[in-house]
């Protein structure tokens, strides 16, 4: 009991002395005001160097830092699309490669300026026919997109009007089928790679595609398209 009373008295004494200090602080504040007034009038006469409180500098600096952080985030966002989960798997011809739910084996490709499709058609560029077989791992499925990509990064998709023989076909789980895919490319195209996309890549979802560089034979004869056929077990 007595102890607490004495502490309380000490508290009061402490606060009283602090109060005295506060009052001293107030007098310092009045000194600030008088000094700032004189400096301010000096500033006006000189035309520069207005006296600013330290707190305002800190606020301005934080605001500038926030704007700079926002600008940096915008620049990164615009230039580096978040696609950390889009994978391009590199493969080779004449080997079995698994991408997502597809198992793929590319045999080769041939090019010519002419295609035999009921009648002989001459292309303004060149025709490329890719010979490949594929199967799935789980259920019957058809790859959503298969394109050719050249060194410059141009994409070539399936041309229209040449019937259904040169298009993608459905394949079954461990049921391999072999067929041909038709593309039409410009005559000056360089090295080509086949890109098989089980699903069309979407910026919001993970995706995996397979890219196989092609060795393309040049044919002088018109190319023909093979309809897809199921292979015996173990055949590719």
């Amino acid at each position: 009991m007595s102890g607490s009373t004495s502490e309380g008295a000490q508290d009061r004494t402490g606060s009283t002395s602090e109060g005295a200090q506060d009052r001293t602080g107030t007098s310092e504040g009045s000194q600030d005001r008088s000094s700032s007034t004189s400096e301010q009038s000096q500033g006006r006469r000189a035309g520069e160097g207005v006296h600013v409180r330290r707190g305002r500098w800190a606020a301005a600096a934080m605001l500038a830092a926030a704007v700079a952080a926002g600008a940096a985030a915008n620049a990164i966002d615009a230039n580096f699309l978040a696609s950390g989960w889009h994978t391009v798997q590199r493969g080779e011809e004449a080997s079995d490669i698994t991408v997502d739910n597809f198992q793929v084996h590319v045999h080769g490709a041939a090019t010519s300026t002419q295609l035999e499709d009921l009648e002989v058609v001459t292309s303004p560029g060149a025709f490329v026919v890719v010979d490949l077989s594929y199967a799935t791992t789980d259920a019957w499925d058809t790859p959503e997109e298969v394109v050719l990509i050249d060194e410059a990064g141009r994409e070539f998709s399936e041309p229209s009007g040449f019937g259904s023989a040169g298009r993608v076909w459905p394949a079954g789980p461990d049921i391999w089928s072999r067929g041909s895919l038709l593309f039409e490319v410009p005559a000056d195209v360089g090295d080509l790679a086949l890109e098989l996309r089980p699903q069309t890549p979407d910026a919001r979802l993970p995706s995996r595609v397979l890219r196989v560089p092609l060795t393309v034979r040049t044919n002088s004869e018109p190319l023909t398209l093979e309809r897809p056929s199921v292979l015996a077990e173990g055949d590719r």
Partner: peptide
Amino acid sequence: ARLGSAQPGV
């Protein structure tokens, strides 16, 4: 036949 898609460079 229908053109469908115009391939780059052709």
